[in-house]
Write a protein that binds this DNA or RNA. Sequence first.
DNA 1: TCTATATATAATTATAATCTTATATAGTGA
DNA 2: TCACTATATAAGATTATAATTATATATAGA
Lengths: 113, 113
Amino acid sequence: MPESASPSVFSAIADPTRRAMLDFIATRPRSAGQIVSHFPKLTQPGVSQHLRILREAQLVSVSIQAQKRIYTLKPNGMRELHDWISKYQEFWIDKLDALESHLEKTRTVKQEK
Amino acid sequence: MPESASPSVFSAIADPTRRAMLDFIATRPRSAGQIVSHFPKLTQPGVSQHLRILREAQLVSVSIQAQKRIYTLKPNGMRELHDWISKYQEFWIDKLDALESHLEKTRTVKQEK
DNA sequence: TCTATATATAATTATAATCTTATATAGTGA
DNA sequence: TCACTATATAAGATTATAATTATATATAGA
C-alpha cells in the first residue's frame, strides 16, 4: 500500500465550511472578496484563514489581479486524497458488489414466492 | 453535483491515528485487543474511542466473538468519501492531464535544442 | 458465584482548531 | 502623497477534539 498523504489535505476537508468553499470555487474561479460575500456568517479574516488552509493543502491556487486574489481549484490536493482512497477502493468495490448481488438474489427469491 | 457526505467521515479520517488503524484493519479483521497491542503509544480507552468514531463513520463494522470485538473494514464510509471526491474528479483529471502534456511538450522542446 | 479477561463508557484534563478583534500590507486612483 | 479598496496576518478568546484516569459491562472458566 502507498504511503499516506500529507495530513493537511485530510484536515483541510474535515471542516464543512472549507468543503463549501471548495464547492463555491469549483463552479468558477472566485476572488477572496466574492468568497467573503458568499459566506455572510463568516468574517473576512475568517475566510482568509480558511483559504490559507486550502492553499497549504494544495486544493486551491491563487493568482493576483491588482489587489484582488483570484482563487482557483487546484488538482494536486484532490489527487493526493484520491490516491489515498484508492488503497481501499478495490476492497470496497468488491464488498459493495457482493452486497448488491446478494440483495438481487434475495429479491428474486421473494418474487418467486 | 451530489450532496456532501456525512461530516463524520471527513473528521474520522482527519486523524492520522485513525488512518493508521484503518490500514491495520484493512489487511485483515482485527480484535480491539490486537489493535491496542499494535498501537503501544495509545491506551486501551483511547483506542476504544477512536474505534467508536470509525464505527460511526461507517468505516468499520464490528462482530462479537465471546468478549472479543472483531473490527472489519466496511465499505460504506469509503464509498461516501469516494462519491464526494468524484465531484471534483473530472476537474482534476483534466487539469493533471493538461499539466502532463505540457511538461511532455516542454521536455521535447528541450531535447530538440 | 468468584475471578480474570476484553472492551466500552464517563469524567476530567490537555491540546489543537476555529473565531474575533485589531492591525498590517499592498495596490489604485485622486 | 493621501485616502480607499482588497486581503492577509497576529494575538487573544472560545470551542472542539483527543488523551488520561477511573469505572462499568459482559463473557468465560474455575
